[in-house]
Amino acid sequence: MGRFVARRLLQMIPVFLGTTALIFFMVHLLPGDPLAALWGDKAPDPVQLAALKHQQGLDQPLLQQYLSYMGNLLTGDFGTSLDGRPVLDKITDALPVTVRLALFAFAIEIVVGIAIGLFSGLRRGKLFDKGTLVLTLLLIAIPVPVLGFVVQTVFGQNLKWVTPTVQDSNDITQLVLPAVVLGSLSLAYVARLTRTSIAENIKADYVRTAVAKGLPRRKVIGTHLLRNSMIPVVTYLGTDLGNLMAGAIVTEGIFNVQGVGHALYQAINMKEGATVSGFVAFLVLVYLAAGLIVDLLYAVLDPRIRYA
């Protein structure tokens, strides 16, 4: 177990280096010059531009730039964005908002998704089950931006239950609508996965044993059926936590949430290499950590799994 965790942590190092390198070089491949853009529509003054470039270290060879960036990163210096703010400041501002939004969406998809999946799995072929299949298919088919705009229009503009966009990103009650939109796709997958898993396991011999033991239905389902059925669902949920952080980029744009997605979007538009790389490096870390946690959770759910 300890060795397994140590090995997984060591494996994270090359993954982390690889992804940050990819992002760093990809940002440089974007067309346009971020510094020249500071002059807006006017032609930049060549002397000033050269001075700025030198100041930012952008006149050095790309590999040199990358190495010094990575060197700084290892000492915890994420660099400075073009507006003079340290990138780390931007991250610590935006990250809590996105984490909150993603966790909110995560909670919704777990609670609602598993509940729906459980009920339709138990009533396979009945009306509720058929309804679930159609609705989840619909959710999977609708692109998130479309769903976001529809929800925004209906609840924000027509019914006026909430403001169409988020006014204060730190107010959790304002995040309900974005969280529902963000979690909806995964909710559909979770519901379907749970349904299939339940419908399959309900025929398992150990469930029959549980009935033969004279256990009440509640215990048969809660103790014996549900736990076994959660194994594939947890696999999905683990990879999904990272996806939610990334998916938040679109949702945050629609609802004007000042999170990682918002900051990253702006940074990409401005072609700020340091900011983009910094944010992505952080997201990569979150993704890797979530994966590790899920792998460890397996052992809790299924004692047959051993780490070697």
Binding site: D205, A212, D302
Partner: peptide, 18 residues
């Protein structure tokens, strides 16, 4: 379970693995 109990053929699948 209390009055009538049953023993199944394949104990590996009849016992809950988790």
């Amino acid at each position: 379970g209390q009055k009538i109990a049953m023993i199944f053929q394949d104990a590996l699948s009849a016992l809950n693995p988790v």
